[in-house]
């Protein structure tokens, strides 16, 4: 099971958190402004490996935190 350390509340189980999405940018190779908007609105990196993402501690201090997580094993990395 995934445990996430909240800066305010300490190590808490994943059920207390909501997944808020990966931190991502639009790839530089996409030049067209409309295509960049489409990418920003719809596309995901969906990385198989270590990714940075936002999580919301809804059942705790109700603050957002940034987490680095390995999606291949669903574990938090430092």
């Amino acid at each position: 099971m995934l445990w996430i350390t909240c800066p305010g509340c300490g190590r808490r189980p994943v059920e207390e958190y909501s997944f808020g999405g990966e931190l991502r940018g639009v790839p530089d190779r996409i030049a067209d402004p409309v295509e960049r908007d489409v990418d920003y609105a719809w596309m995901y990196d969906n990385i198989h490996g270590v990714t940075s993402e936002r999580w919301f501690h809804h059942a705790g201090c109700r603050r957002w935190l940034t987490l680095r997580r390995d999606t291949s094993t669903d574990t938090v990395v430092a």
């Binding site: 099971m1 995934l2 189980p13 997944f19 969906n46 999606t71 291949s72 094993t73």
Partner: peptide
């Protein structure tokens, strides 16, 4: 599961 992952591990929860 709510968060994306490629893990095939089952959970007790």
């Amino acid at each position: 599961d709510p968060q994306p992952s490629y893990s095939l591990r089952s959970s007790f929860n």
